[in-house]
Amino acid sequence: MFYPNSPQTSPQLTQIPYGQQYAMMQRQIQQPYHPFATTEPQARLYPYHYQGPIQQEQGGFITQQSTAASPQYVQMRVTPVDQSIMSGYPNQTANGSSSSSFNYNIHPQQQQQQQQQQQQLRHHAMPVGSVPLQDDRYRKQLIVNYLAPDVTSTDLHELFSRFGELDGARIIYDKQTNMSKGYGFVYFCHAEDAKEAVERMSGYEFHGKWLKVGYSTNPLNIVPSNSSPYVHAGSRGAAG
């Protein structure tokens, strides 16, 4: 039997160049792979992502010199942007860049009308829970959420009447099932009393439920100042 490094198959040491006398086997001759043993700084910083320098080929596509990437890492192929796409944008300079302001050559009167329309939209648009300043009635009506099913309009009136005089209180019921929808409205005579009720009743436990109280901004629920107070009856038909 002959071994790869046996004296019968191995040459004389004098015939082997210096430095390879003890590297006779194939696994010894093959050098191990060192990912950080390279002179390129990109490979030292990113050993798993770097795959060699990027070269520009004919046709405008950018390719990489090395083989496919590892399945664990996804390499994105980048193509140059066609400058003709950006030619339609206004205020574009000769080098292809555009300024931040756009001039669509709008007539001054049209621009003024658009600004007025935007101001009107901001004036009428009102986020949930906010209180408008032009109508004091919005500051007097509250919406009470997360009410228990057994709470009546009379219970709601008695709960909030300790903060001040009320114009009314009612629970909203479903017309088909005649069941409470879980929320109601309270109408105060003074805005200061309503503000105190919002601050003190939010998070209050009532009939096993934690109440959420806020201003009601729905104009359909506003009680006119010259109208008669609501009837605080315990029956659902009268309260709904």
Rank of each mutant, 00 (worst) to 15 (best):
192 E>H: 07
161 S>F: 11
62 I>D: 09
117 Q>M: 07
238 A>M: 12
127 P>F: 11
216 S>N: 00
190 H>T: 04
119 Q>I: 12
147 L>A: 03
86 M>P: 04
155 D>G: 09
13 L>T: 10
7 P>Q: 10
142 L>R: 01
4 P>I: 15
120 Q>S: 12
13 L>W: 14
231 V>A: 07
162 R>V: 07
93 T>R: 07
216 S>I: 00
124 H>L: 11
209 K>Q: 00
6 S>K: 11
231 V>E: 04
134 Q>I: 11
196 E>M: 08
231 V>N: 07
132 P>N: 06
49 H>Q: 09
239 A>M: 01
17 P>R: 05
22 Y>K: 07
70 S>C: 10
124 H>D: 11
91 N>Y: 13
194 A>L: 01
50 Y>N: 05
126 M>A: 05
215 Y>Q: 01
238 A>R: 12
154 T>Y: 15
191 A>C: 06
89 Y>E: 03
35 P>Y: 10
25 M>L: 04
6 S>I: 11
55 Q>N: 10
205 E>D: 04
187 Y>D: 00
104 Y>A: 14
51 Q>V: 13
49 H>N: 13
7 P>M: 10
229 P>W: 11
81 V>R: 11
141 Q>M: 00
140 K>A: 01
65 Q>E: 03
223 V>L: 10
2 F>R: 05
75 Q>H: 08
152 T>I: 07
67 T>I: 07
173 Y>S: 04
196 E>G: 08
92 Q>L: 13
214 G>A: 08
193 D>Q: 09
60 G>Q: 07
66 S>H: 09
78 V>C: 09
91 N>R: 08
66 S>N: 08
149 P>T: 10
12 Q>C: 07
109 Q>M: 14
161 S>D: 06
124 H>T: 10
77 R>P: 04
33 Y>V: 07
111 Q>R: 10
3 Y>Q: 04
149 P>V: 05
219 P>G: 00
142 L>M: 07
5 N>P: 08
104 Y>N: 02
178 N>S: 08
228 S>C: 11
229 P>A: 15
60 G>L: 13
129 G>N: 04
158 E>A: 08
56 Q>M: 15
68 A>C: 14
215 Y>A: 00
34 H>G: 13
106 I>Y: 10
133 L>H: 14
112 Q>P: 08
72 Q>S: 07
214 G>E: 02
87 S>C: 15
33 Y>W: 15
54 I>Q: 05
145 N>G: 00
231 V>W: 06
187 Y>V: 00
74 V>D: 03
142 L>Q: 03
60 G>M: 09
222 I>L: 04
221 N>C: 08
78 V>D: 03
100 S>Q: 12
54 I>A: 06
88 G>H: 05
233 A>S: 07
153 S>L: 04
63 T>D: 04
41 P>T: 07
11 P>Q: 12
12 Q>I: 07
183 Y>C: 00
